[in-house]
Design a protein around this nucleic acid. Structure first.
Length: 389
DNA sequence: AAATCCTGCAACCGCGTGGAA
DNA sequence: CTTCCACGCGGTTGCAGGATT
């Protein structure tokens, strides 16, 4: 339903654009703006569908596009954001000024993904592929735990997306429509305070976990996964809820949550334009981490950063040392955060493992904190026009 | 030098979503 | 409330050019 038929029409040109076509499109948009893309080709004298024109403009002709090689900083940004956002190229592109989502997507698929794979990491999960290492301790519930982690990670993403939608709506309505749209937490103030966001998110999380009756409807296709993993998700989240004694989402004041995430102090000041999706998910009291962050803890904990320095993964080390990418990963947060001082456990242990010793537990928590702080910092320094944060 | 393979990128395709009618 | 339209997004494809045999 709602499919645009424009590209199905016969007689419309497809394929590579000629300089003449580019010139026509450029001239028209410079003079009139693009307006309705559907109507544009006829007005501009192009025998293309509007979709094709839009693509050509956004991916190539737009004047604010930076072309050429990606810098290390850009690579770093892409990797970190991909770990956080997955294949949401447009969202990632929002944090890379002058780069298009298509370009980032291509660069990921042709360069970064391969490099990660070559180094033994799953480019989808950013987790070491060698699961055998993970199961060396003989725990029987690894696969379940892994699924739970995936589900939790997905839930974090879904929650973030849902929240993004809510906030976008609220913003676009200039905060005038108080308390509507199913965001019951948004009715407490003008705009949305951090605390109110927690409330809404907590409700969402509770709903996702089966607490309460409503379903959490994802704006993306990832809902399929969520549905398929519903049982595991409920089990996992249920456990979390139990363990944290209801500390997952509370109507905490800013002061309360700030104490768990001191490094977000500056960040949160820009709530209007820099709202992280996962800051709304709640915090574990014993880990300082927001739920969503811990949900992704395997990403941080099992990250290439730690593995590369483990001393037990020589094959990976060699490869990583061979490329600038190594530094990219190592520097991504290690420099500033001491992430490299992580435990020597190759591949790490899953976060569900509650039997860690005090020091390794601390290391682990510190690693998580630092890794995600680096991402927070990254996002924090991103352009304020970003619709995502 | 020619043929084949590989890589990277531009462009297309199909789907989901929001909003208007 | 339903249907349709326009748009944006992410996955995929096809081709050009470089590398290799």
């Amino acid at each position: 339903m709602g499919r645009s038929p424009c590209c199905d029409k016969v007689g419309l040109k497809k394929g590579p654009w000629t300089p003449e076509e580019d010139q026509k499109l450029l001239a028209y948009i410079e003079e009139h703006g693009h307006g309705s893309w559907r109507a544009l080709p006829a007005k501009a004298g192009l025998h293309r569908c509007g979709k094709s024109c839009r693509l050509r403009w956004t991916n190539y002709l737009r004047p604010d596009i930076k072309r050429g090689k990606f810098s290390l900083q850009e690579e770093k940004t892409i990797i970190q954001l991909h770990a956080l956002l997955g294949n949401r190229w447009s969202a990632i592109a929002n944090h890379l000024p002058k780069r298009t989502d298509n370009e980032i997507k291509n660069y990921w698929n042709t360069h970064l993904k391969k490099r990660l794979a070559k180094m033994g990491f799953d480019p989808v999960t950013h987790k070491p592929k060698n699961d055998a290492m993970l199961s060396r301790d003989g725990q029987s519930n690894k696969s379940d735990a892994k699924l739970s982690h995936m589900a939790q990670w997905e839930s974090a993403r879904l929650e973030a997306e849902a929240r993004l939608v809510r906030e976008s709506k609220l913003r676009s309505h200039s905060f005038n429509q108080v308390g509507n749209g199913g965001c019951s937490g948004c009715n407490s103030s003008l705009g949305f305070s951090r605390a109110s966001t927690f409330v809404a998110s907590g409700q969402l999380l509770a709903k996702t976990a089966g607490i309460g009756g409503d379903h959490f409807e994802s704006p993306t296709s990832t809902l399929t996964f969520l549905e398929n993993s519903k049982q595991q998700m409920i089990e996992f989240l249920g456990t979390s809820l139990d363990q944290q004694s209801g500390s997952i989402i509370k109507e905490e004041s800013e002061h309360d949550w700030k104490s768990y995430m001191p490094n977000l102090g500056e960040f949160k000041e820009g709530v209007g334009s820099h709202t992280l999706p996962f800051t709304s998910i709640g915090f574990h009291h014993d880990t300082w981490m927001p739920m969503a962050l811990e949900a992704a803890s395997w990403t941080a904990h099992d990250s290439p950063i730690k593995t590369s320095t483990s001393g037990h993964c020589s094959s990976l080390e060699n490869e990583m040392e061979a490329e600038g990418f190594t530094e990219l990963l190592l520097n991504s947060s290690g420099e500033q955060s001491g992430l490299l001082e992580g435990s020597g456990n190759c591949g790490g242990e899953s976060s569900e493992n509650g039997g860690e010793s005090g020091s390794s537990r601390r290391d682990y928590l510190e690693d998580n904190k630092n890794y995600w702080n680096s991402i927070l910092n990254l996002v924090n320094s991103s352009p304020s026009h970003s619709p995502l944060f």
